[in-house]
Design a protein around this nucleic acid. Structure first.
Length: 828
RNA sequence: GCCCUGGUGGCGGAAUCGGUAGACGCGUUGGACUUAAAAUCCAAUUGGGGCUCAACCUCAGUGCCAGUUCAAGUCUGGCCCAGGGCACCA
């Protein structure tokens, strides 16, 4: 065995062996229990970045650990390869998005292989290939047939920069999630998926996911935004037969309504405006249209509005109050109309103050009864000025008042969600075409399933501005109606890439199926994903959509489970000098350079070493260097011990060793096996796993340093220690351990070995260190026999000279003994 | 404003049940080896104080203030700060 560590040489050699032997292929049939480890698949942007390296290393180590522990592990990889960057690159360089994407995939595949990841490449999934998007289209059609995909005219988010619409989830602070430019509202006819049908179950089933972090679950719950209240209808005084419905969470305050606000885009606003107010209202609405979402949603903006001139009647007390329009009412939430109670709502209060609208206290503030002139009182209290409901606690009043509205026919109990339907059509080329045609005679028609896939056209001009390149195709849009055979027009919108990524994890279970997206038995066998690993940035977008897809496909009978990801690990970001790595900051680290200079094993070791996976990781060049040195140290330890390694004495029995130092080393190995196994099983604490590698290596070095010659027992112990170390390190340092295993004469691959087991009796020190405290303060440490009784320990502690100093002349009130650990003497 | 995380040495971070605070590493300092350097190895490294020096002793210390307990980084209550998410959502 070579004395020096040559990672580049070793890594290349074994990567080829693994690839040639298809070492990481997963068979569907196995007696072993299944384990599905999955990283979020990447967008093929060109090169791997350190975030990818971290993500994939984590999942790889998990997969390898599970495999050594007797699981049949599925660990696949693929490409989320539709999307705008490819199209932009095509426009910029006059190339084709497909070529650009293929080149990137080829390069990144090479990098993944250089990282030594244990993927089953036979299951590779690429969303932009027809054999995949055929099934994305097929699934869209199944949703369509179930009424879960529909087209409607709506106010949608439009990104001018990207030239397309966006889903609500893709608008961050009023800006496009991809290009950061300000999003506008447009009225367009677009395709939606009916995720709102699943709002309640998506919320409720978060409870079924103990393996997800609370942060992600809370973000999803907030996004779904469930609230419970009442829908109340108010008759319009001036227009017989007309009503304005209002959603409120505060039906207890109905007696305090002094005006009502409708959004500027409210559908009946023109009818509700009197001729005298028409001009002012029109102007206000025109202004609202011009304002950007960001301006409009700014909470510190002064609220504005204009009266419509009409009035509503409060059915509870017969009072009349005026109708206004104001842009603090949102057309897309509730009914687009708000009942205003200035005394008990801060927004209504501000508005009423500004326009000198009347206020009426209906919930008593115990500290300041009947006065709401300074600020709105929004806390609980007892009702006043509320007719028959006076004196009732406001929580009870919510129910009682809504019930009265139900009984008298002007209201109902209502649950409202913030979640809106998922807008999936995009006015772009590089996506899965929506498989729909429009026929003048027959209307909207789905493409028959046997005609799938609807292929992307090739005769496209990518240099066009202001419209989707797909519309420049001479052949694509023109088609025939599948019903009447007459002339028809094909849908030119493509699907949001998040549709493609909402089911890819299902496809891995049966990646080559040409007849179906996946066979039901295979998907039911492999899913749900046992461990999903990815960035927190997908907490809402991808993870919510995937949960929706799984539930919808379950209802379609395509699979039998209802949550796709049993356990979710959201890994932290990779930082450099405390800031997120980014090209603009110039603080990126190129994985290729790390592979080149130190090898993949060093990169893998380092990226797992300094922080727990869920936390941010600060990249440091010194840290990489340190890991490289450690691997060299490991290599030297193995190579200098190679001559003593034998495979026949790997099972050493407790208490059979003659020498204490040998016994101690044996114990250290067992302690390491136990600790490392537990740390991986318990939330994948790889940072402490790596500390324990170092502790074990240090222990073996210390032991060796004290031996001048080795006898038979020494050799057996050393052999056991070295082979255990190699196995323990094999999920992380995949190449080094494979080379060492092979050089030492191990059978087969290290990665096919069983994970070492520990003996509970050996996984602890031979003696215990008794902690002696006086009044809770550490005063002495005494080596004690492991089998000492509580009385022995107590006697030992009291006999201590150090303890006597603190107890002399005082009364011992109490002595607490924690077996095998500690004695605390309480004195006065 | 609401929700979720987190706060421990110069730094990254350790610390199953409440039971030795600071594992392991980085950095720094000193030393060995070397003609020299690299590599490697050894030692020290929370702060204050005591001792001629040292081993050693001692006090304080896990964001702040209280509390529970023989014992609190860990449990309870109240606050402060940082990061992230949501938000004119009626």
């Amino acid at each position: 065995m070579k004395e020096s560590y040559y990672p580049q040489e070793i890594e290349k050699k074994w990567q080829k062996v693994w690839e040639d032997n298809k070492s990481f292929r997963t068979e569907d049939d196995s007696d072993k229990p299944k384990y599905y480890a999955l990283s979020m698949f990447p967008y093929p942007s060109g090169k791997l970045h350190m975030g990818h390296v971290r993500n994939y290393t984590i999942t790889d180590v998990i997969g390898r650990f599970k495999k050594m522990n007797g699981f049949n592990v599925l660990h696949p990889m693929g490409w989320d390869s539709f999307g705008l960057p490819a199209e932009n690159a095509a426009m910029k360089h006059g190339a084709n998005p497909e070529t650009w994407t293929d080149e990137n995939i080829a390069y990144m595949t090479k990098q993944l292989k250089m990282l030594g990841l244990s993927y089953d490449w036979d299951r590779e999934v690429t969303t932009c290939k027809p054999d995949y998007y055929k099934w994305t289209q097929w699934l869209f059609l199944q949703l369509y047939k179930k009424g879960l995909a529909y087209k409607k005219e709506a106010a949608v988010n439009w990104c001018n920069e990207c030239g397309t619409v966006l889903a609500n989830e893709q608008v961050i602070d009023g800006k496009c999630w991809r290009c950061d430019s300000v999003v506008e509202k447009k009225y367009l006819s677009q395709w939606f998926l009916k995720i709102t049908d699943y709002a309640e179950v998506l919320l409720k089933d978060l409870d079924k996911l103990p393996g997800w972090g609370d942060n992600v679950k809370t973000m999803q719950a907030n996004w779904i935004g469930k609230s419970q209240g009442a829908l109340l209808k108010f008759k319009v005084k001036e227009i017989p037969g007309m009503e304005v419905p209002v959603y409120t969470t505060r039906p207890d305050t109905v007696y305090g309504i002094t005006y009502l606000v409708v959004a500027p885009e409210y559908k009946d606003i023109e009818k509700l405006t009197t001729p005298e107010n028409k001009a002012a209202v029109e102007e206000y609405r025109a202004n609202a249209r011009k304002m950007s979402e960001i301006e409009r949603l700014s909470t510190d903006r002064v609220k504005t509005g204009v009266p419509l001139g009409t009035h509503c009647i409060n059915p509870f007390n017969g009072e009349e109050f005026p109708l206004w329009t104001a842009d603090y009412a949102l057309v897309e939430y509730g009914t687009g109309a708000v009942m205003a109670v200035p005394t008990h709502d801060t927004r209504d209060f501000d508005f009423a103050k500004k326009y000198k609208l009347p206020m009426k206290v209906v919930i008593e503030n115990p500290e300041n009864p009947s006065d709401c002139s300074e600020e709105a009182y929004v806390e609980p209290g007892v009702l006043v000025n509320s007719g028959e409901f006076n004196g009732i606690n406001n929580e009870d009043a919510k129910k009682a008042i809504t019930q009265k509205a139900v009984d008298e026919g002007f209201g109902e109990f209502k649950t409202q969600y913030r979640l809106r339907d998922w807008l999936v059509s995009r006015q772009r080329y590089w996506g899965a075409p929506i498989p729909i045609v429009y026929c003048d005679k027959c209307g909207i028609q789905p493409i028959p399933e046997d005609q799938l896939p609807v292929l992307l056209p090739k005769d496209v001009d990518f240099s066009v501005v202001g419209k989707s390149p797909i519309t420049t195709s001479k052949t694509f849009a023109e088609t025939t109606c599948p019903i009447c055979g007459g002339k028809a027009r094909r849908e030119t919108d493509t699907m949001d890439t998040f549709v493609c990524s909402s089911w890819y994890y299902l496809r891995y279970s049966d990646a080559k199926n040409a007849d179906m997206p996946f066979a039901k038995d295979k998907v039911n066998h492999w899913l749900p994903v046992d461990q999903y690993v990815g960035g927190i940035e997908h907490a809402i977008l991808h993870l919510l959509y995937s949960r929706f897809f799984t539930k919808a496909l379950r209802d379609l009978g395509l699979l039998d489970f209802d949550e796709p990801f049993k356990n979710l690990l959201t890994q932290g970001m990779v930082l450099k000098d405390g800031a997120k790595m980014s090209k603009s900051k110039g603080n990126t680290v190129d994985p290729d350079e790390i592979f080149e200079n130190y090898g993949a094993d060093t990169a893998r070791l380092f990226i797992l070493s300094d922080s727990p996976p869920a936390r941010d990781f600060d990249w440091s060049d010194a840290g990489v260097e340190g890991c490289y040195k450690f691997l060299n140290r490991v290599w030297r330890l193995i190579s200098s011990s190679a001559e003593y390694v034998n495979f026949s004495h790997t099972e050493l029995v407790a208490g059979a060793l003659k020498k204490k130092d040998n016994d101690d080393l044996l114990r250290n190995v067992h302690i390491a096996i136990k600790g490392i196994s537990n740390d991986i099983s318990n939330d994948f604490q790889f940072n402490t796993v790596i500390s324990k590698y170092r502790e074990l290596v240090n222990a073996i070095y210390d032991w060796k340093g004290k031996k001048s010659e080795l006898d038979a027992e020494d050799k057996d112990v050393l052999s056991f220690a070295i082979l255990s170390l190699i196995k323990l390190m094999s999920p992380v340092a995949v190449h080094l351990t494979e080379e060492a295993w092979s050089e030492l004469g191990g059978q087969g691959s290290i990665h096919a070995q069983d994970w070492p087991k520990w003996d509970e009796n050996l996984a602890k020190a031979s003696s215990i260190t008794l902690i002696v405290q006086v009044n809770g303060k550490l005063r002495d440490k005494i080596e004690a026999d492991e089998s000492s009784s509580e009385d022995d320990l107590k006697a030992l502690a009291l006999a201590s000279e150090r303890v006597k100093e603190f107890t002399d002349g005082k009364t011992i009130v109490k002595t607490i003994v924690v077996p095998k650990k500690l004695v605390n003497i309480v004195v006065k």
